[in-house]
Design a protein around this nucleic acid. Sequence first.
DNA 1: ATCATATCTATTAAAAATATAGATATGACA
DNA 2: TGTCATATCTATATTTTTAATAGATATGAT
Lengths: 154, 154
Amino acid sequence: MMLSKKTKYALKALHYLAEQPGDQPVLIADLARAENIPKKFLEFILLSLRKGGILQSRVGKGGGYSLAQPANRITIGAVINILEGNIAPVQCLDTTNQAHCEECLDEKTCGIRLVMTDVNIALSQVLNNLTLTDMVERAEAARNKQQNIVDFSI
Amino acid sequence: MMLSKKTKYALKALHYLAEQPGDQPVLIADLARAENIPKKFLEFILLSLRKGGILQSRVGKGGGYSLAQPANRITIGAVINILEGNIAPVQCLDTTNQAHCEECLDEKTCGIRLVMTDVNIALSQVLNNLTLTDMVERAEAARNKQQNIVDFSI
DNA sequence: ATCATATCTATTAAAAATATAGATATGACA
DNA sequence: TGTCATATCTATATTTTTAATAGATATGAT
């Protein structure tokens, strides 16, 4: 149930973009350097996110990538969906792609599917309600907390 | 967030074992045939489950595998934990193995970690409360339902 | 026209998941 | 005690997926 490196890179990049004042566009190269992500791999990730409607881009001087929607409208679930193809713990629960588990003889009576339905619901619940804003705010809060502790100890 | 084939095989095998009357031991070969799982791969899976305390085995004539605990005490979460190593969506949340995300500079302020904590809690909640019994019962209920529909149509 | 940028196509490399083979240990039973 | 049926172990091969790289092209600003 582990997030892929690709998805983590995506979340890091989005985090960075969400923190840009005035949604100023950022160059792939800068983003790659700032978040320590292989540039060519990041290119591909950003392109996916753009095609998924989460990012927008501009070519040429002054160009770069920026969020295509307000950060509080971009859910973590949407990001995972774009990069991993779906969120479901088993293919037969991936409704958006109408996928099926090859080895399964009868989906309707499959015990695995019947229990994983609960997992799927719980996951959707959480992931579709967490947004980039949550991520940014929580990180900031954590930094502040850490900062305060340091300040007091001086 | 997809279950591996290995874990699915494990759940299928456990399902089959849970349905044995009187917890009668089942041969690897029979289990492999019944659930259509590559035998050698299944051997490895069953061994893991035994080492994890979920199954017990006996060598020699009349031997085989059976559940080491009542089916309603074996959680789906425990099974996944044994086969995938953990349940957490990111390594740094895998407390049992005290793992960390290599690329992460500061875990405490990592936004990904902070949002994935919610996911982790939700997953644990569900997976540690679903048992083999749930799986078996739901499958049976689904079969009955299907059966009834057929009966009526005759 | 030039330069800075994203975009596309193709390929390679590395890692993980899945599957197989063969030898060995264990226990039941005659 | 010997034989057979079984799980167990060690090693390796195969396949699939993930991650990373390279080079050519399209686009837009100035």
